[in-house]
Amino acid sequence: MKHRTPWLWGAALAVYAFLYLPLAVVVIFSFNDSQLNAQWVGFTTRWYAKLFADGEMLHAAANSLAIALTAASVATVLGTMAGIAMQRWPTGVLRALPGLVLTPVAMPEILLGVSLLLFFREVLDLTLGLVSILVAHITFSIGFVAIIVRARLAGMDESIFEAARDLGASPWQTFRCVTLPLIAPGILAGFLMSFTLSIDDFVITFFVAGVGVTTLPLQIYSMIKVAVSPEVNAVSTLLMALTLTLIFIASRLAPDALKVKP
């Protein structure tokens, strides 16, 4: 399209500014030499020093990492299975599978959090903690992995699998040697997606978290609610730097994973 108009570009730039300005303010105040995020006083790195001495914060970060890795791994396996099942067998009882897999993705998070809380308490009588958080994170991640894997499978030629079968490969061999290598980028993208979702999740974790398993978002929430400390700005800045690095690495390793496929 060559009908670009300057005002359209102006509007687009304004929206980009809207996206970045608030975060820039957070970063700038992380270097401000004042307890209050109110006005610029002077440059300091003491909030970062304080952050690295904050045992609770570091522990929360470690919790988040462990939960995200575990939940993403399980969700990737289950989600890949669901994605394959949805694509290969869209008949019979399994016709209901997409509904089951995709509804949790579409629901407002609070509903998932509340219903799991009810279920853990009233049916399983489970002590809230690591297990409840893991189950919750896996539940909301499966759908995302399944969508990505199914999209990857949908773009493939069915005849490859038939050829493998005709050559006498067992279903397992077909899967190992043909399907898996082909959908691997989708699986990787699904893993990264569920990892990000898990490490970022606040709402659902808020409901199902228990004693001693504070995650980073929960820790940030309680800090924001109590008193504004530039320590929050410092942890935010570091998290942003970390995600930027991860995205950069991911774009080097799997350039396709970041593309928005029409």
Binding site: L117, R121, T127, L128, F207, A209, K225
Partner: peptide
């Protein structure tokens, strides 16, 4: 930050 909040969280199954 509120007693009700604490009681509710305990009732919800935060044990330990």
């Amino acid at each position: 930050s509120d007693n009700e909040e604490m009681l509710a969280k305990l009732e919800a199954g935060a044990a330990g």
